[in-house]
Every structure is written in structure tokens, then in C-alpha cells.
Simulated assay, not measured.
Amino acid sequence: MKQTIANKNEELAQLRQDVPALVRALNQLTAENEELRQHQQLASPRVIPLRARAK
């Protein structure tokens, strides 16, 4: 049982160390997503959709 508790404590410590990097990555992706959404609304589309093929 002591080993199980020790393993869980190690796992929790690793998770706590990972949180700041995950938060930074999430914030960066959120900012990039917002920038892309703004650019999409302001700019004319560079990609022109093709017409659907007639069957």
C-alpha cells in the first residue's frame, strides 16, 4: 500500500509540473484561433470553392 501511495504521489507531482506548459499551449492555441477567426472575417477568401460536379 505504501508503494501505491508513493506511485500516486509521483504521478500527481508530474501532473502538477505539466500544468503550466499545458496552460501556455492552450493560451497560444486560443490566441492563434482568435487571430485566424478575425483574419477570416476581414479578408477576402484566398481559396475559391469549386462547383460541385454534375453527376
Rank of each mutant, 00 (worst) to 15 (best):
P45A: 14
Q17A: 15
I48E: 03
L36K: 10
R37C: 06
A54M: 14
A21W: 01
L42K: 04
L12E: 03
E35I: 08
Q40T: 05
S44H: 06
A6M: 08
Q3S: 05
R24Q: 09
K8D: 05
L22C: 06
I48H: 09
A21G: 04
E10L: 10
E11T: 07
P20C: 01
L15Y: 03
A13T: 11
L26D: 04
L26I: 02
S44K: 06
R51I: 08
R16S: 09
V23H: 00
R51H: 05
L29F: 11
P49F: 00
V23W: 00
A43Y: 07
Q41F: 11
R53H: 08
S44I: 03
A54C: 03
V23R: 05
L15P: 01
L50N: 02
A13K: 11
L50H: 02
T4A: 07
L29G: 14
A6T: 06
H39G: 11
N9P: 03
P20L: 00
T30E: 15
A21E: 02
P20G: 00
A25H: 09
L12P: 01
V47K: 02
P20M: 01
I5M: 14
A43H: 09
P45K: 08
A21R: 08
L36I: 11
K2N: 08
P45Q: 06
N33H: 15
R46I: 06
S44P: 10
Q40C: 07
E34C: 06
Q14D: 13
I48D: 04
E11W: 10
Q38G: 09
A25S: 05
L42I: 05
A13P: 02
E10S: 06
K55T: 14
N9V: 10
L12Q: 01
R46K: 13
A52H: 12
V19C: 00
R16C: 10
Q28V: 09
L29Y: 13
E34K: 13
L42C: 05
L15K: 13
L36W: 03
H39V: 12
E10T: 13
N7M: 09
A13I: 01
E35R: 10
R24G: 02
P49T: 00
P49S: 01
E35Y: 10
L36C: 07
A43D: 15
Q28G: 04
N9G: 04
Q14K: 14
T30Y: 11
K2L: 13
Q14M: 14
L29R: 13
N27T: 12
P49C: 01
T4E: 05
R16I: 10
I48M: 01
A54E: 13
T30K: 15
R24P: 02
D18F: 01
A25N: 12
Q3V: 04
L22H: 04
L50Q: 02
L22R: 06
P49N: 00
N33G: 03
R24N: 11
Q40H: 11
Q40N: 09
R51C: 05
V47P: 03
K8G: 04
T30D: 13
Q38W: 04
P20H: 00
A25Y: 07
M1H: 12
L22Q: 09
M1I: 08
R37K: 14
E34H: 07
Q28A: 13
T30P: 01
T4W: 06
Q28N: 12
A6W: 01
V47M: 06
L15T: 02
Q14V: 08
A25L: 12
L15H: 10
A6F: 02
M1E: 09
I5K: 05
L42T: 15
L36Q: 14
N33K: 15
Q3Y: 13
A6D: 04
I5L: 09
L36H: 07
K8A: 12
